[in-house]
Amino acid sequence: MIFVEYISYAMVPALILVIVVAATKKKVSTYDSFVEGAQEGFEAILKIFPSMLAVVLAINLFKISGCMDLFIKLLSPIFSAINVPGELVPIGVMRSISGGGALAVLTDILQTHGPDTPIGLIASTIMGSSDTTLYVLAIYTASIGITNTKFALFVGLLCDLIAFLVATMLFA
C-alpha cells in the first residue's frame, strides 16, 4: 500500500520531468508553449463557470429549503424494505448531487458510528466508489456546448445506485 501511495505522489513530478526533458531535447520553446497552453486553460474555466453556478445554485436551494430532507424521508422506506439501514440513505442521495455535501455527511457518520462499524465502512465505500454525477455531467457537457445529453443522467444515477447496493452487500 505504501508503495502504491508513493507512486501516486511521484506521478506528477515524474511526468513534468519527462515532458520538460523531452521538450528540451527536441528544442521546443518550453516557456512559450506553457504560457500558450495555460491561456487555453483560462478559456476553458470561463466556459465551465456558468454551468457550475447553475448546478450549485439549484442544489443549495434544494438543500436549504428542506426538500432534501423530505426527499430522503420519502426514500427511506423503500430502502429499508430491502434491508438497507436508514442512516445510509442521506449519503447515497448526496453522493450523486454534491461532492462537498456527501463529504459532510460521511464525516458525520464516521463521528457518530465510528469508521470501523458496518455503517462506517459502507458509507466510506459509497463515498469512494463514485464521483458526483451531476457535477461531472454539467462540467463536461457545458465546456463544449452540448445541450442534449440523451440518457446520460439516467445511466449516471443508475451506476450510483449499483455502487451503493454493492457497497451495502459487501459489508452486510
Binding site: A22, V28, S33, A38, G41
Partner: peptide
C-alpha cells in the same frame, strides 16, 4: 492552467 500548459509542451514535443 498548469496542466494545459504542460500538455501544450508535451503536444509540441
Amino acid at each position: 492552467a498548469i496542466w494545459s500548459g504542460l500538455m501544450k509542451i508535451a503536444e509540441q514535443t
